[in-house]
Simulated scan of single mutants.
Amino acid sequence: MLAPLDAHLTDARPRHLRPAHRPLVELFYFGIKEARACLFAGLFFLAMFCVPRAGLLGIPRYDVLLAVALAIQAWMLYARLETWDEMKAIGLFHAVGFALEVFKTQIGSWSYPDFGYTKLLGVPLFSGFMYAAIGSYIIQAWRLLDLRIRHHPPYPMAATIAILIYVNFYTHHYIGDYRWYLAACALGLYARTTVIFRPLDRDRQMPLLLGFMLTGFFIWIAENLGTLMGVWRYPNQLGAWSVVHVSKWSAWSLLVIMTFTIVANLKHVKARVHVPA
């Protein structure tokens, strides 16, 4: 069903548009492509908002959400919206995300208050799919927007900063938060990096760091919606809901860098990444 839409969105033949109309048309297509790239995330979060807290047909909410996430993932693989290699990368996102969830809930950073049969160590198994959704978005956007990366830092350096970002999510509870030092390192590494994308029929570009920040911001918005629906809660939200602290925006932006690094190492993606000699 999505094949005709994808064929239209990836059609790069020149469009003859009036100069006054082009910015609006390109913005419209950019929005459509972004929405299409968020297919997994959109369907998953829609289910998150629609499934009642009491669950469905006697099945707890967390278990329903796991079943929905698995069904969406299986459908995308069956429909060839994702390849097996991409599926493996998404599985890695799920694993590292779930491990982080277990650690954070054990130390009380946040909690999943409802019952579920598929909870492991206090964390519902569906939670890893929230991280996998980020990876799925980046993979889909790469294809739909024909992304190309210029002046990407050497892979060993990018991998090192990505690993340190992930490790800091654990260690900052014990040896101090080095988030801003890592952000400064990432700023230096990606200062010259540019992402080239195609909203319609012409290439546009922007700093890759801006892309990281914008993606992190929208994840922060989604996190606010998730806590508002009571799917998970921070300690300060147990009595009454409040906005998730804006510092989480920076944490999500750093997590996007880590996710991007994994995606950039996929074979078919790596061919579109320019690393200066």
Rank of each mutant, 00 (worst) to 15 (best):
L208R: 00
K270I: 00
L46Q: 03
P154T: 06
S250Q: 13
R80W: 06
F169T: 14
L5D: 06
V273W: 07
R204E: 10
T105L: 03
K88W: 13
A240L: 12
L120A: 12
R202C: 12
F44K: 05
L92W: 12
N236P: 04
M1D: 13
E223G: 01
P156G: 04
M229C: 10
A99I: 15
I163P: 00
F44I: 07
L125M: 13
I262E: 02
P124N: 11
A67C: 08
L254K: 01
Y155K: 07
A271V: 13
L189M: 12
L121P: 07
D6A: 06
F126Y: 15
T118F: 15
I59A: 03
R204S: 08
R233A: 11
L27W: 12
A20M: 12
E86P: 01
L65F: 07
Y190A: 00
M1K: 12
R22V: 10
R36S: 10
V123D: 01
P153A: 06
I196A: 13
G122T: 10
F28Q: 12
S247A: 14
I196N: 11
D201H: 10
I138V: 14
A74S: 11
V243A: 11
P153C: 08
A264D: 08
R233T: 11
V123M: 05
F217N: 04
G176N: 10
L225A: 14
W142Q: 12
E26F: 06
I134Y: 05
G42W: 09
G116R: 07
H21F: 11
A159T: 13
Y137A: 09
G226K: 05
H173S: 11
P153V: 08
D85Q: 14
A95W: 03
A79Y: 09
G216Q: 03
M206H: 05
V64D: 02
Y62M: 04
P52L: 05
A277T: 09
P154D: 11
S242P: 01
A186I: 13
A37F: 07
L254N: 06
Y234P: 01
T215A: 13
L27F: 14
P199E: 04
G230A: 04
P4V: 05
T193Y: 00
W110T: 03
L225W: 08
A271F: 00
V244W: 00
A47N: 09
E101W: 04
P276M: 08
L266T: 00
F197K: 04
D203Q: 15
P52N: 05
V275K: 05
L238V: 14
L27C: 13
A191I: 08
C38E: 06
L5T: 06
D201E: 04
V167E: 05
V25K: 13
D85G: 06
L43V: 09
A158G: 04
I72M: 04
F28M: 14
T83D: 02
S250E: 11
R61Y: 05
K88A: 14
M213N: 05
M130V: 15
I163S: 11
G108R: 11
N236C: 08
R53H: 08
W84V: 15
T261K: 00
W75T: 13
